[in-house]
Design a protein around this nucleic acid. Sequence first.
DNA 1: GTCTATAGCGAGATAGAC
DNA 2: GTCTATCTCGCTATAGAC
Lengths: 207, 207
Amino acid sequence: MEGLESNKTEQQILEAAYRVFQKKGKAGARMQEIADEAGINKSMLHYYFRNKDSLFKKIFLQSITEFLGSVIPLINDQETTWEEKIKGLIGHYINFMRHRPDLPFFVMNEINQNSVEFFNHLNLNIGSTLMNSYFFIQLQEEMKAGKIRNLNPLQIFISILSNVIFPFIAAPMIKRVGKMSDEDWDSFISQRELFTSELIINYIVKI
Amino acid sequence: MEGLESNKTEQQILEAAYRVFQKKGKAGARMQEIADEAGINKSMLHYYFRNKDSLFKKIFLQSITEFLGSVIPLINDQETTWEEKIKGLIGHYINFMRHRPDLPFFVMNEINQNSVEFFNHLNLNIGSTLMNSYFFIQLQEEMKAGKIRNLNPLQIFISILSNVIFPFIAAPMIKRVGKMSDEDWDSFISQRELFTSELIINYIVKI
DNA sequence: GTCTATAGCGAGATAGAC
DNA sequence: GTCTATCTCGCTATAGAC
């Protein structure tokens, strides 16, 4: 029973820390705020996670894994065409960003802030995974066969991310510039999914 | 003479604050670090700018103006076609990001952190400027005439920004994934300029 | 495991000599 | 205008009772 209780507390802290760190960043987050958000005494944070740094590290690792890890099955799916993969990636990230609008910003911000060593240290071999992915192989084969435009697959992949993630990062600015209500924003994002799919695929296939 | 001296000191502080705030963000920046960067005694920061908040406000306002203001002449140029404007925008931002890779990230981060009121308070009427720009008018006319695809001009504009700015925001991640040296990165960015131009224009013109 | 009280320190801000 | 010394406060972290 004690074990369960402690797990519950620990879990509440983690969930609160997840929200606060992503919203405020490491430097801007306050241990007191995390404690309040969790409805738990501040000293419990230290009891379970020793200090701010190690709590942050846990959250950051979880965040970056969610952000990058979720695409791996998608890009290595043997059953889908490259075109379906592109649509799948765009749909996945639109959906992801709708639920966690702060996450990619948080991840990239902290990578920029903390030394690169820290980032290298948690060795997520995303690199080779992406460059050797079935998605990239498919694209290269189609290019060799002259069926699609001859392009750098990494540029294609970055374009997908750019078009879907950036709008969420710039959301406050876009809402203001476009004088959008929350419903306007929702439909803008729905439109964006289609827009991006067509934008990218159209460019790739045109000879 | 005194006036000149003080201006010089003030200027050095501003330049140092510009760099430090953009790199570390408001919460992460230290007054001591700004002073060191400027080669100037810490108390001088308070002498000239009263406190951290007001120094930050100055830098933020300058940053957001640089970021948004520089495009206004471009999108309202009466002498260029919509196609030239797109190429111009892409070229401008690639060049801009090369010299100030931290700026857009900084601006958008602080907009997210600080309350929206603060952002509203510095009323830069970018909104109506963009939506009523000559660029948007040109696009709408071409659409009405059936010469280009019928699209939301704001989606087009956001796509331009996304494809050019996001890669710089995600630079450390991209470099790592692509195992890039600094020269690799440079050529990736050069390639990106062409890629983005073709990507966008190709989609717009295809009937 | 959970709480209260408090130590310790870093950072922003000020006082005051020059 | 510029410097040194110092105040003050907020935040992380710990001690210790229960």
